[in-house]
Amino acid sequence: MAVCHVTDQDFEEKVLKSDIPVLVDFWAAWCGPCRAIAPVIEELAEEYAGKLKVCKMNVDENPVTPGKFGIRAIPTLIFFKNGQPVDQITGAVAKSTIESVIKRILG
């Protein structure tokens, strides 16, 4: 499944009300490490299709949601389960680091 793009408007519907856990990548065009991590995010979206929804939110275009979750660094990855944030990773990290969190969340 491809990466979905979420906005302040559809965040509740696409992320908080999702039936399966969601990984949201908060990013911006001017952030180099966000670019660096992009292919990893795309691979994860494919590999965990059906089990984990993978979304991206542009923090420049959507000021409300990042503020709500206290984001002061990007890339930040927040994992949501049943409408609640359950884990968070800050900065560009290796795929294996992200996968270890995903595996824990999917149980």
Binding site: C31, I74, G91
Partner: peptide, 14 residues
């Protein structure tokens, strides 16, 4: 870290 501590000004400066 990520809550005001940063190692990347271009990422987090704004």
């Amino acid at each position: 870290t990520g809550k005001g501590v940063s190692y990347c000004a271009t990422c987090d400066g704004p």
